[in-house]
Design a protein around this nucleic acid. Structure first.
Length: 579
RNA sequence: UACCCGGUGGUGUAAUUGGCAACACUCGAGUUUUUGAUACUCGCAUUUCAGGUUCAAGUCCUGGCCGGGUAACCA
């Protein structure tokens, strides 16, 4: 049953993979599959980009093809080398390999220019002197057709001369463009004599000052695909209306013609992918940087402790489609926990320490106990955890007056300390404010390792650390950046920042962690038993340990508590109503 | 109604292309457990609507309804 399901799963192809499979079957491209991921180097990659490049690289891998990494750097004023480096690192981190096929659109500027000259010679392109604003007016509106530019019928010779002089920098920015001569009455606005080149006296991060004209996306993109021999050019839905233009340029030139297919971008609850808004958050200091662990950027997710494997599983699971949808953040968390559960070494850490003194344990003695590193992976082995008279437990694991269903420590109650002993709480020591300062407990030496020879059972197993052996740590607890599933869901006059979650970051200091982690390096991943998955922060040093909470463990006790509270509220409400 | 695209549980994706609506997540109810984790079991839809074709429609046809995209010298 399971086997057939898995087989079915493998056979299930999304609509793009179906097209690719059919093309192979019908020998459309000589059984060749060649995709590309074409980021613009003007910002960082986020998980939405991961969906796109996992699709492109994934298809190449599955169909025995190739996928290029290509920087679409046609706009010199917005692009920087720094982004190229960051993007390259992110794609590599995600486990994809473009081998020697790292390309830049700017490397094709010469060829593109020659092709533009060809179009001019064919009477299919002309130099236009309309300003940007005039161009917009001539283009017309959605429901009405445009008008021909007065410069539309210049002679080939004049166009050639003007275009050459544009290239040579003889004209100021914005004074002239090269346009394709298509159809100003087309119902598709993209076909109303689109701009191919604009004049930009700008320094390009790779091409330097060689060019004074730069190609527009619609003109450039198909040419890039054509030069690289791309078979399936995948892009997002908003380019659907551009496909006729993509096809028109390639047909007009009579060159190798890849096919463009569009798919929906990723949307996720409780976050957003807008490049502009992400950089706004950074610029306004609402998050720290591109790799702030609350951001859906790949560098942020990496610093948060996400594994590339979990992101890839997620991208595979969400599928590909042609309509907008919003994926539940819980699905991402599921993929994350699933992988982390299988791979993370377990460690004991106390976030909110409460001191416990084992009154019948000898002073100065240390016990070395064996602990399993990963119950799901025997090869992960075991480690030694020290035990002594003074310990820390989690403050939440003790209640002086426990409600129903609270299984943990309480006065007179016996619980198990994981891998150690059964302990029983005998005294609650309070400070002058009445706050619980420490607990006195006794232990049962017979229960070493956590089993009672007499077979008696306890309801709870708790994590702990030995006070004198523990390391101090700072722990950063992260939560959703926004309080609403849709951050854009705001009242009139507000913007998405109104939905920022004030509790998206809580910094805990004075946390206690077992000594086995003392040599941890940035980005090491752990499960802190009974709490969640954590990752060593990039700011962490051996002298100052810092951990980020990647994601908590599922917490049924929290749910029970919430239910109990809700029931209480309801009862109080009923009483009020009855009065 | 300018053009283009789309509509299957709460969410996301399937349905061998006309043949018993499946899988995952979430949520709920349980079992197991030295992590209240994991694992496991069970439960949650008449496929946007109305007609039509057909032995048979999520799938094909017609019409409606609803949603998204498009008017940068951005990509």
């Amino acid at each position: 049953m399971t086997e057939t399901n898995e087989q079915n799963n493998e056979q299930r192809l999304d609509f793009i993979r179906q097209i690719v499979a059919n093309d192979i079957k019908n020998e459309i491209w000589d059984e060749r599959v060649h995709t590309r991921f074409p980021p613009e180097p003007n910002g960082r990659l986020h998980i939405g980009h991961a969906k796109a490049f996992c699709l492109n690289f994934g298809i190449a891998e599955e169909f025995n093809g190739k996928c290029n990494l290509r920087f679409d750097d046609t706009n010199p004023v917005k692009e920087e080398q720094e982004h190229v480096d960051a993007i390259t690192e992110d794609v590599k981190w995600m486990g994809w390999d473009w081998e020697d096929r790292l390309y830049f659109a700017s490397d094709y500027f010469g060829q593109m220019y020659d092709w533009a000259v060809q179009l001019i010679n064919d009477g299919k392109a002309y130099v236009c002197d309309l300003t940007a604003e005039e161009t917009r007016k001539y283009r017309g509106m959605l429901k009405e057709s445009g008008r021909n530019s007065p410069y539309r019928d210049r002679s080939v010779a004049e166009n050639l001369d003007l275009f050459d002089r544009m290239k040579n920098g003889e004209f100021p920015d914005g004074t002239k463009t090269l346009k394709a001569k298509i159809d100003m009455a087309s119902p598709n606005i993209n076909m109303r004599d689109p701009v191919m080149y604009r004049i930009l006296h700008a320094h390009h991060h790779r091409a330097g000052d060689d060019w004074c004209v730069y190609p527009m996306y619609d003109w450039a993109h198909g040419l890039e695909d054509s030069i690289e021999g791309i078979t399936h050019s995948l892009c997002s839905l908003e380019f659907e209306n551009h496909r006729p233009l993509y096809d028109w340029f390639l047909d007009a030139l009579g060159i190798y013609h890849p096919r463009q297919y569009e798919f929906a971008r990723l949307n996720l609850t409780y976050t957003m992918m807008s490049k502009r808004k992400l950089s706004q958050l950074i610029e306004d200091g609402l998050v720290s940087s591109w790799d702030d662990p609350r951001l859906p950027t790949l560098s942020g997710l990496r610093r948060r402790g996400f594994s590339p494997e979990s992101i890839r599983t997620f991208c595979k699971t969400i599928g590909v489609n042609k309509f907008n949808s919003t994926i539940d953040y819980a699905l991402l968390e599921h993929c994350l926990r699933d992988h982390l559960n299988a791979t993370s070494p377990r460690v004991m850490a106390v976030l909110n320490p409460l001191k416990v003194v084992i009154t019948n344990y000898p002073d100065g003695q240390t016990d070395e106990l064996d602990a399993i590193n990963n119950p799901n992976d025997e090869s992960a082995g075991t480690r030694i955890v020290p035990f002594s008279k003074e310990l820390y437990i989690e403050r939440d694991d003790f209640m002086e007056d426990p409600p129903r269903k609270f299984f943990r420590l309480a006065p007179g109650r016996e619980v198990r300390l994981r891998y150690a002993y059964f302990i029983t709480c005998t005294d609650v020591i309070k400070d002058e404010n009445g706050e619980i300062a420490e607990l006195h407990c006794t232990y049962d030496p017979e229960t070493r390792g956590g089993d009672a020879p007499d077979g008696r059972r306890v309801k709870a197993t708790m994590h702990w650390v030995s006070a004198k052996h523990a390391r101090d740590a700072e722990i950063r607890l992260y939560d959703h950046l926004f309080t609403k599933e849709n951050p854009e869901d705001v009242e009139d006059g507000q913007d998405f920042t109104a939905n920022l979650n004030p509790d998206s970051l809580k910094v805990l200091t004075g946390c206690k962690i077992e000594p086995s982690v003392k040599n941890t390096k940035p980005l090491d991943r752990f499960q802190f038993e009974r709490i969640g998955y954590f990752c060593t922060d990039t700011d962490s040093t051996p002298d100052k340990l810092i951990f980020n909470r990647t994601v908590g463990l599922r917490d049924t006790w929290a749910k029970v508590q919430k239910q109990q509270q809700d029931q209480k509220k309801q009862k109080q409400q009923k009483k009020k109503n009855n009065r």
